[in-house]
Design a protein around this nucleic acid. Structure first.
Length: 869
RNA sequence: GGAAGUUUAGCUCAGUUGGGAGAGCGUCUGUCUUACAAGCAGAGGGUCGGGGGUUCGAGCCCCUCAACUUCCACCA
């Protein structure tokens, strides 16, 4: 092993070592544990969110595997229809190529080329993160089988009346030139304006309406007012003549209108506003589309061909010129933006495909209500429920090329339309040529099938029957709607069972300033850069130790350094262990058996501590509190093992090296296993080094709780107290670390008389030249400092001693003991406490009174002794 | 408009059934004690956002106020 911890030296070797080790058998009789990896988009590279998500999953997968579960963690990537198409178009653009000029097939070929490259990158990055997945089952949302699953599901839902095609108002992105679903719209607050426009009334006068989108007036087909609004009662039934286009539209009543807002009169544009669309349906209004798919005005108006923003400016200008602009007010509102390209989304009517959600949502709500699927932490089930209960039909068609093409076919001669899993060429009615629907499906349509399409669905495969339903889904809270909800109803509907029994929700990784990492802010941190600089284990430990259920974590360089220091600590502990087992043969090392009859006090203490640690880790892994797993290990390894046990073992090596090194190896071996799920690389590397490549740590059993040596733990805690006490005495008296002191101890009972075994340990850890065990207390005061240990009196012998320092210390000690005594007494004097507090607590308080009274007496005696001299 | 979360040491955060507040970093002191100076030993530092309540006892439970954050809905 090298002198320093340099992860680059071995991390890639470990990746190669693990390569094919996590392929899972679908014929095993072990209990199963199944997780589907949320497939990263093939749009680029992994970000910190992926790093957190996959590190969490990996630690759980490794733990479950070591706990004896037949663990399938299935990896994959997502074709990310709209996002990838945008990227490819952009790439082509930079090469001077237009998407249309390539034609559909040519463009798709470019997309598949892109997929090859980026999917490969992502897989490499997942490997570097240490993901212990089954690479033999690697999936892609657009591979053959997933496509077959998509077609099957689409046809089934269509035949069940749960998919329909219809003219509805949808969100249209004029830049992506496609419909998008409600979930894909992000509302962003902005300071805009509200224009008050006078609409001339046929027959004289005018009515003023208020709007934030004046250009939509070209598509108005009515003006509505509240039926309770007296101001406009006389106008209802009359007609307004739309400026510029001269269309006559009625003034009508509708309950929707809030008389107190704006002018109380609302222009109605059914083709370009969801509320107006509803009003239009109620009042049987015409719907006039005034925008083209790329956001230009159309419909035979004077503004045809103008882009929407310039059309608005021109219309406002023209209204002003005509004296029809009453006023303009600043107005705070929010507008929908495309979550992919960020341009303002236009609501417009369009013929699209929809999934009827109500019937599908019902079982998905029940499944969470009755606990078939459980959210961790529970609070996230509320968000899920709220969305599911207020769900609207899902617009699933996208006017893109990259994606699953909708399996609907239209005859080019007659009006025949059919939906089919297999390609349909010929019209069965007129024999004409059938042409497939041009649109593709929303990415999430195929993602929704991920828990079973990856296992062979719709075919009844062995994998599907073995591994469905899954055990756990790990994902960030930001895709509960997009993905978790849709997997839930899809799994229930198509497989009859929930896709996973638990959903572990985690937060997002924020930048060091607490803001979201984003491209526009340029505050993103690339996990691969961190791996290059610090190593994967440091990144993993940093992320996991910061995880609290469901909450965000903040990236900080400091914490990364803390994680790196921890890895370094482990690395050096391994070097120490390796050095000390140098005389053992490799057979002895691999078959290391600890003789329990020869264990020392310290051995029994560390083994008991190890037990505590195992217990705590099991509990915290089972409740997915991975942050606590990391913290527990950090404290156990650094404090108990490194700072105490390794130092002690140096002394024990002098007594019986063969024996001491065996116990040391045993404990460290267990530590490596406990740490492995969290930081797999360094632990696997240490295992390879120590056991000469005989084992693969990732495939070993997780440590089990063994014998607790309770009384030895108590005894050792006294020794620890003693060492800490002596160190404090030294510090109080400003004795430098490199100066050894002479100590003697008078004990109250056999414990101290029997402690000769640990004297060398105390000498080493408390830097003493000698420690004498006395059979009676020392009365002499000169050049001696006393300390009241729980089981005796400890004396430190000094060459010279400043009496004033000693007296000050005694006074300070007395003062603090008196403070404690008073506090305790006042507690016991309270009737409420003694009558209502549990007996156990009262006893503790009573013992305290006794303890502090004694201490004060002793200190008083000593003080008097000093003052006499 | 509706909902959720956060507020604890200078900084970043733990604190699991209510029983005398913790870690890491930073600061100060001492130390290169041969696994580790990316270390070791010690010290200092907090009226747990404000107010009220329940309780013998509240960082933890209830009410209220404030600040910040997020999600959902969205009025032309």
């Amino acid at each position: 092993m090298y002198d320093r911890y340099q992860p680059k030296d071995f991390e890639n070797t470990m990746v190669a070592l693990w390569q094919d080790k996590f392929v899972v058998d679908n014929n095993s009789d072990k209990p199963k544990f199944v997780m589907m990896m949320p497939p990263p988009n093939i749009t680029g590279k992994l970000h910190m969110g992926h790093a957190l998500n996959n590190t969490l999953q990996d630690s759980i997968a490794r733990y479950k595997r070591m706990m004896g579960f037949n663990t399938l963690w299935l990896p994959g990537t997502d074709h990310a229809s709209i996002a990838t198409e945008l990227k490819v178009v952009e790439q082509l653009k930079s090469q001077g190529i237009d998407k249309q000029s390539l034609g559909r097939d040519g463009f798709l070929q470019k997309c598949f080329d892109w997929k090859e490259q980026y999917s490969g990158n992502i897989i490499e990055q997942l490997k570097r993160l240490g993901c212990s997945v089954d690479w033999s089952r690697l999936a892609f949302t657009m591979d053959k089988n997933c496509n077959k699953a998509v077609r099957t599901v689409f046809v089934d839902l269509y035949n069940q009346g749960l998919i329909y095609k219809g003219q509805r108002i949808i969100n249209w992105c004029v830049d992506c030139k496609t419909a998008i679903s409600d979930a894909e719209v992000e509302y962003i607050e902005n300071n805009g304006y509200i224009w008050h426009i006078k609409y001339p009334i046929d027959g004289g006068g005018h009515i003023t309406i208020a709007t934030t989108r004046p250009e939509t007036m070209l598509g108005d087909t009515a003006v509505v007012v509240s039926p309770n609004d007296k101001r406009y009662k006389h106008l209802v039934g009359k007609y307004v003549v739309l400026p510029f286009i001269g269309r006559k539209i009625p003034i009508l009543n509708d309950e929707y209108v809030d008389a107190s807002f704006g002018t109380g009169a609302v222009k109605v544009t059914p083709a370009h506003d969801p509320n107006d669309f509803e009003i239009g349906k109620r009042l049987n209004l015409n719907s006039i589309k005034i925008l083209t798919d790329d956001g230009k005005i159309t419909g035979g108006t004077p503004y045809d061909g103008l882009e929407r923003k310039s059309a608005r400016d021109k219309i406002v200008e023209d209204l002003q010129a005509l004296g029809l602009l009453d006023k303009v007010e600043e107005h705070h509102n929010s507008r929908g933006h495309c979550y992919r390209c960020n341009s303002v989304v236009e609501p417009m009517t369009s013929e699209q495909w929809f999934v009827k959600m109500q019937p599908l949502a019902e079982p998905a709500i029940q499944a969470v209500e009755n606990g078939d699927t459980e959210f961790v932490p529970k609070s996230y089930s509320k968000i899920y429920m709220h969305w599911m209960k207020n769900i609207r039909d899902w617009c699933i068609s996208r006017q893109l090329w990259w994606g699953h093409r909708i399996p609907a076919y239209y005859c080019n001669k007659c009006s025949n339309m059919c939906v089919s899993v297999d390609i349909v060429d010929k019209c069965d009615k007129c024999g004409g040529k059938m042409i497939q629907d041009e649109a593709v499906l929303d990415t999430w349509f195929s993602s929704a099938l991920w828990p079973f399409s990856t296992l062979g669905f719709p075919d009844k495969t062995r994998d599907l029957s073995t591994f469905y339903p899954g055990s756990l889904l790990v994902t960030a809270y930001d895709i509960i709607f997009f993905w978790v909800a849709r997997m839930m109803f899809s799994g229930l509907h198509h497989m009859g069972q929930v896709p996973f029994s638990k959903v572990l929700i985690h937060g997002i990784v924020r930048a060091s300033d607490g803001r979201k990492m984003s491209k526009s802010l340029g505050n993103g941190v690339d996990p691969i850069d961190i791996i290059d600089n610090y190593g994967t284990d440091s990144l993993r430990f940093c992320l996991l130790s910061g995880v609290a259920l469901g909450s965000d974590i903040r990236y900080s360089e400091e914490r990364l350094q803390k994680a790196q220091a921890f890895c370094n600590k482990i690395y050096n502990a391994a070097r120490f262990v390796k050095h000390n087992i140098g005389e053992m043969s490799i057979e002895e090392v691999c078959n290391n058996v600890v003789d329990k009859t020869t264990l020392t006090l310290a051995d029994k203490w560390i083994l008991s501590k190890l037990n505590d640690c195992i217990k705590s880790i099991n509990q915290n892994f089972d409740s997915y509190e991975i942050g606590r797993v990391a913290d527990t290990l950090y404290n156990f390894v650094w404090d108990d093992f490194c700072d105490w046990y390794i130092e002690i073992s140096k002394v024990q090596m002098n007594v019986d090296k063969a024996r001491a090194s065996k116990v040391l190896l045993h404990v460290f071996d267990n530590i490596l296993k406990l740490l492995h799920p969290i930081i797999p690389f360094i632990t696997e590397y240490c295992c390879q080094e120590l056991f000469d490549g005989k084992y693969i740590l990732a495939l070993q059993d997780f440590p089990k709780v063994d014998i607790f040596y309770n009384s030895e733990v108590d005894k050792f805690e006294h020794i620890r107290q003693l060492i800490v006490g002596i160190r404090a005495m030294r510090a109080d008296n400003k004795i430098a670390q490199n100066i050894k002191v002479k100590m003697s101890i008078y004990g109250f009972d056999d414990f101290v008389r029997d402690m000769s075994q640990v004297v060398p340990i105390v000498c080493k850890l408390a830097m003493c030249s000698q420690v004498d065990i006395l059979d009676k207390p020392i009365q002499e005061q000169k050049n001696i400092i006393k300390w009241n240990w729980s089981v005796g009196t400890v004396y430190m012998h000094l060459e010279m001693l400043d009496q004033s320092v000693v007296i000050k210390k005694l006074l300070d000690d007395k003062k603090s003991a008196e403070f404690e005594l008073n506090l305790t007494k006042s507690k016991l004097n309270s009737v409420g406490f003694t009558s209502k507090a549990p007996q156990k607590l009262i006893k503790i308080e009573e013992e305290k009174v006794e303890k502090y009274t004694q201490i004060i007496q002793k200190l008083q005696l000593e003080l008097e002794g000093h003052k006499i001299k």
